[in-house]
Design a protein around this nucleic acid. Structure first.
Length: 413
DNA sequence: TGGGGTTAT
DNA sequence: ATAACCC
């Protein structure tokens, strides 16, 4: 396989600079509540970091310009434009967050390799960086495939730049793990291809196991218990010990990851599996406030669902309760089916589906919280999921990935 | 420390 | 429904 990982540079900041070009030359941060979630490179030069407190960022950089990024609509829309653009080259595009995509370009590479072999193999040239500056051997067809991959990655970035005005990085390798890890080696707006001989170096360059995508906070903590701190430790750990701590499935998967092995396919994301909207705040402690917050969240969500054209069959309310310790990660939720009579109304405009939904959501709320007792919430989230296509006679469903434009060349297989 | 997403159990 | 992961 040949996989490309595409990673847009400071995505929210780029979108804001397109929305308001006067911000182009300023140090710019995107703010959500009391945090600068991302910033452009002007701001980074002046010491602003991702996820920095606004207070610290202003201290470091008093000239910092901030825009509010709590409404994700512009980012979400731009994000899908990128995914759809990549989808014009190849059907196998998988989203990761709003600013990253994996593309499985194996078939495109094979096609070009055949053309190349018919017309004499000379003149193949790598695009962008080669990891470790490793020499290319054009006798090695694996090298040639990856070099072709680097050219395709360049075409992706060129298309994203000229058609959407966005810059980003790309990594090319033979699996998703490695493509993702290698894409960040040269950072803004550059790309890197990994050749097999440098795989060990790339994995060894990771100083902590949590840098391995797929090994998160919890797993890293448990591995530390076993004395595992870096990738080498994880490779060396007897698999029996690992399986005992994490279970066979996770153990086998992450130990393979530690060698740079990743068999997971690029799974086309297609349209979203869920739509959610959330808001965090210092305090919400009465039923009336909860109802107000929910009423604020719903209109935006319903509009998105309407545009999508599918019907959500499940609705969920999530909350976060205040806690001085462990402020992060104590969320609870309750969900229920959307009643069939409401389902019909989702497609229609101007019908009032809001108040019955608020009623349902307040019932879910009372399943979690005894409203007779004091409570202190710091977050409310509403999520619609279990999306089903309409019975196919209804108009208006755009059918997300329906368009198939012409890729650079095409032939029936 | 935001405002989103996904999959596995 | 939660827990883990990703951004």
């Amino acid at each position: 396989r040949v996989i490309v990982h595409v990673d847009l540079d400071c995505f929210y900041a780029q979108v804001e600079m397109i929305r308001n070009p006067e911000l182009r030359d300023e140090p710019l941060g995107v703010q959500q509540k009391s945090i600068v979630v991302t910033c452009n490179y002007e701001a980074r030069k002046l010491g602003v970091k991702k996820l920095m407190a606004v207070k610290d960022a202003k201290e470091k950089c008093p000239q910092l310009v901030l825009v509010n990024g709590e409404d994700l609509t512009p980012y979400r829309e731009t994000s899908y434009k990128v995914t759809e653009l990549l989808g014009e080259f190849c059907p196998l595009v998988e989203r990761l967050g709003f600013d990253e995509n994996f593309v499985d370009i194996t078939e495109i590479v094979e096609k070009r390799l055949n053309q190349l072999q018919q017309s004499g193999c000379s003149g193949v040239c790598v695009s962008g960086h080669v990891y470790n500056n490793q020499p290319i051997n054009l006798q090695d067809t694996t090298h040639v495939r990856l070099v072709i991959g680097s050219q395709i990655a360049e075409e992706f970035r060129e298309a994203i730049s000229t058609r959407l005005g966005l810059t980003g990085c790309a990594g090319v390798a033979w699996n998703k793990l490695l493509a993702k890890l290698v894409s960040g080696t040269f950072k803004p707006n550059q790309q890197t291809v990994l050749l097999p001989e440098s795989c060990r170096d790339l994995m060894r360059s990771l100083d902590h196991i949590q840098k391995v995508p797929g090994i998160g906070y919890k797993t890293a903590k448990r591995l530390e218990t076993l004395g595992v701190r870096n990738v080498g430790d994880l490779q060396a750990l007897p698999s029996a010990s690992l399986e005992k701590e994490l279970g066979v499935s996770i153990a086998q998967r992450i130990q393979k990851l530690s060698y740079g092995e990743d068999g997971s396919p690029v799974t086309p994301s297609g349209p979203p599996q869920s739509f959610s909207d959330e808001d965090s705040f210092k305090k919400c402690s009465s039923e009336a406030e909860v109802k107000e917050k929910i009423e604020e969240l719903l209109p935006n969500l319903l509009e998105r669902i309407h545009k999508d054209g599918r019907q959500p069959h499940t609705v969920r309310l999530s909350i976060r309760q205040f806690s001085s310790t462990d402020r992060w990660f104590n969320r609870e939720s309750r969900q229920c089916p959307v009643p069939p009579h409401l389902l019909q109304k989702f497609g229609k405009e101007s019908s009032n589906v809001i108040s019955p939904l608020v009623d349902i959501l307040m019932k879910l709320f009372r399943k979690m919280i005894d409203v007779e007792l004091p409570f202190h919430l710091t977050l409310l989230s509403v999520c619609f999921s279990n999306l089903k296509a309409l019975p196919s006679s209804k108009k208006g469903s755009i059918g997300f990935y329906l368009k198939q434009m012409s890729p650079p060349s095409s032939s029936g297989k």
